[in-house]
């Protein structure tokens, strides 16, 4: 390795360290408090006939069949406050995905019909900016700090 390789290596490690620091600082500012769920999925496609495959091992679980649009903007604070586990089934590009919320742990993709299962193995997310991506299904689940109600400055008063 040449001297310049070493400089490059050090530079990359510093960039990564800096990015981690920024992320840590930003991500831990709030846990689930005040966060909302952001779910992006392809436009509703017909069920791919793979449901049985996906739903294996989910006996006794109350699945809520829903859409990404319905989950969009769901308040994590509200989910935590309700304090119960939730399971939502949504449609991806290749088949069904099962999202799982567990109080205190966050959101995960529990099951997904995709070859690599990267999304399932990502596990729980619970901080601002974290996301789970399922590339084959074209689904992104992430936690975001809500767009501050821009109307808030407009209102004359807030009814508490």
């Amino acid at each position: 390795m040449s001297r310049h390789d070493w400089i490059l290596l050090a530079g990359m490690m510093m960039a990564a360290a800096l990015a981690f620091t920024l992320l840590h600082w930003w991500g831990t500012a709030s846990q689930t408090e005040g966060l909302v769920l952001h779910v992006a999925a392809p436009a509703q496609t017909a069920a791919a006939g793979t449901e049985n495959e996906v739903l294996e091992g989910l006996d006794g679980i109350r699945l809520e069949e829903t859409t990404a649009a319905a989950l969009e903007g769901m308040s994590m604070t509200r989910l935590e406050a309700a304090g119960e586990e939730r399971y939502w089934q949504i449609q991806g590009a290749q088949g069904t995905l099962v999202l799982h919320f567990e109080p205190g742990r966050g959101i995960e993709i529990l099951k997904a019909h995709c070859p690599d299962q990267v999304c399932v193995r990502t596990g729980f997310i619970q901080k601002a900016g974290q996301s789970i991506v399922c590339v084959p299904n074209e689904v992104i689940v992430s936690l975001q700090t809500p767009y501050k109600n821009t109307e808030k400055e407009d209102v004359d008063a807030i009814l508490q």
């Binding site: 509200r78 406050a81 809500p146 209102v155 004359d156 807030i158």
Partner: peptide
Amino acid sequence: KIGITDPTDKTRCMGN
């Protein structure tokens, strides 16, 4: 215009 507080998240308004 009165902001209506979200009962499940006091920091937010769900509408006016």
